[in-house]
Write a protein that binds this DNA or RNA. Structure first.
Lengths: 155, 155
DNA sequence: CAAGTCAGTTCCTTTTTCAGACTTATGCTG
DNA sequence: CAGCATAAGTCTGAAAAAGGAACTGACTTG
């Protein structure tokens, strides 16, 4: 597998994996959604090596997930803010959190609870069909080749 | 970071990342959802080295995502089938596919189209609140510490 | 009975990752 | 203004993971 051109594969999953398909990147994104924005803050909360953090942040900026915004001119300093493209990763993160809550829990209960400000309740994320609104299950989905297909790929 | 105990972190995202947080594992799961089940089939469609494939399949079986089921006794052969725990990863995969469709597309259009058998239409997956049914956005969610929290973690 | 298939395993090389020290620019403190 | 702190990196050598390719073993098929 040539990981450097994974984002050009005729498979949307591969293209997403090219961006978020490694452990550190997913953990960095978790921190972003928890409103962490600065290099030192990422580093100390994740205990990631500075070298890798630097590299991963650059990659996320290159892919347009984060924007590097100056917050101080005197000593030039920047923070990393989620773009819309980055914010749109939220369902992926929430789906992973929910799966972890459901299948990897321990006796202490879930680590975090999520409140939906719109309705004021604690909730779980549910994935539904955009057309009929019913919850989706793998076995009820049929896959067709789309216009962007080459041979046979994707999920 | 001690990757070998990531599945015991007080953070549901970390625990999920422990299982699916690498590129090969995600691509293997894609194939599973496309009904690939056998060693040779995974290997030839992904071009993964046999060594890594063997290791990843073992890990997925150990975590209870796949079940190794015999399909021939004479020469002992097995296939790898998604368990319920594995099928429940579907929203993660679909969220990734949808993000790829939306943000990593090229001029040829999307590689695959998904039909919901229940309603018969081509659809996109949408993540909604389990309580009010409205689509979820990162900025409308407030996070509270849950009973399983230690210090401060998770998304 | 030679060749092929399936599901791995073994061995060796190359690439990534890790841990920690070093750098650069600046601000704060006495 | 010397000395320490802070933020955001870069550099380096050792350890771990991934890649490539050949090898094994238990059959099956022509």
């Amino acid at each position: 597998m040539k990981w450097d051109t994974l984002d050009e594969e005729p498979c949307s999953l591969s293209r997403t994996v090219a961006v978020v398909g490694d452990r550190w990147t997913l953990l960095i994104l978790r921190e972003c959604f928890l409103r962490v924005r600065r290099f030192e803050a990422f580093q100390s909360s994740l205990q990631i090596t500075r070298h890798l953090l630097s590299e991963r942040l650059k990659k996320l900026v290159r892919f347009g997930i984060l924007r590097r915004v100056p917050y101080s001119e005197a000593p030039k300093r920047h923070e990393y803010i989620l773009t819309q493209k980055g914010l749109d990763l939220y369902p992926i993160i929430m789906a992973m959190v929910h799966w972890g809550d459901t299948h990897m829990g321990d006796e202490r209960g879930r680590p975090l609870l999520h409140e939906h400000k719109a309705c004021g309740k604690l909730f779980d994320p549910v994935m539904v069909c955009s057309e009929c609104g019913e919850p989706l299950h793998a076995k009820q989905v049929h896959v067709h080749a789309g216009p962007g297909q080459r041979g046979a790929d994707a999920a």
